[in-house]
Amino acid sequence: MDSTYNIIIADDHPLFRNALFQSIHMAVSGANLHEADSLDALLALIKKVDEPDLLLLDLKMPGSNGMSGLIHLRSEYPDLPIVVISASEESSVVSQVKSHGAFGFIPKSSDMRELNSALNQVLNGDPFFPEGLIQNNDACNELSQKLAALTPQQYKVLGMLSDGLLNKQIAYELNVSEATIKAHMTAIFRKLDVKNRTQAVILLQQLETEN
């Protein structure tokens, strides 16, 4: 396949990122590849790359909180095809990935031939999911819709909340007032339909998956 695709690889493991980098160069001739090792780095990169054609996303990176990272990206960039590449290959994980709006799922155990075939399929505009690994999960759909309603700043606040930071610490990290954080908290609780910090964190954790 000859192309000038802009492809972003988002994975926090340097060795796997490098292996994927080499594999894509073999599978997609002439592709422009970009790399990110955290959600913050990825969000900054997406803004710099001229119309990215594909994002290859690991579920577990700093700042992504598993499935919630995918949901946030899907909400912010609805037109960007996102294909999850993960070592978590259970049918429940694949089903969640699909229900949260991913364009495909490629197991990290895939060999070069399988990776090549999957990449060509998604770049040709057709979703790719392993056969026989899709289940219906209405509960996850409802959770993803709630999380997708958060603004980027609210999502970041929720992630810090999940990491155990206090309002004062979050305000310092984001360089805003504590009153601003409290306002964000109120909006987050309302959108997620929860009453307190603990319930918000539990809701977020329901979307996390094991690496």
Rank of each mutant, 00 (worst) to 15 (best):
L39N: 03
L204P: 05
K195D: 00
L55D: 00
S117T: 10
N65G: 06
P152R: 13
L161F: 10
I134C: 03
P62T: 07
A10T: 11
L147P: 09
V97R: 04
D126A: 14
S91T: 07
Q205G: 05
F103T: 13
E35P: 11
D11N: 14
M61L: 08
E173A: 12
L42R: 14
N116W: 13
E90H: 12
A118T: 14
A41N: 13
A102S: 03
Q96H: 05
A19M: 14
H100C: 07
R17C: 07
L56H: 07
A200C: 05
S29V: 15
G104Y: 03
S29E: 12
D79M: 13
G164C: 02
L70N: 01
A139Q: 14
E142I: 11
D79K: 12
L73W: 04
G69V: 02
N18Q: 11
A19K: 14
R113Y: 10
A118R: 10
K98C: 02
V94H: 03
T180S: 13
G159L: 04
P62L: 05
D40G: 15
S64H: 08
V93K: 03
S88G: 08
S64Q: 06
K156I: 12
L42G: 08
N167M: 14
I181H: 03
L150I: 11
Q145W: 00
D37W: 14
V84E: 01
K156C: 05
T4Y: 06
M1Q: 08
Y155C: 14
G66A: 01
A183E: 14
G125K: 12
V84K: 04
A31P: 10
P78E: 02
D53C: 06
K156D: 10
E131F: 07
G30W: 10
M61Q: 12
E208H: 07
T180A: 10
E131H: 09
G69K: 13
E208F: 05
E114A: 10
E178S: 08
V84W: 01
D11K: 08
E51K: 15
S144Y: 05
H100E: 02
L161T: 03
S91A: 09
P107H: 04
N141A: 09
A149S: 12
L165N: 02
L119I: 02
L166V: 15
N175M: 02
E173P: 13
S92M: 15
M26T: 15
Q145E: 14
S23G: 13
Y155G: 14
F103A: 12
L119V: 01
E142T: 15
I85P: 10
G104F: 03
D79C: 08
F129R: 06
P107I: 02
F189G: 01
L161P: 03
L54I: 05
F21A: 08
D53W: 15
Q154L: 08
L33A: 02
A149T: 15
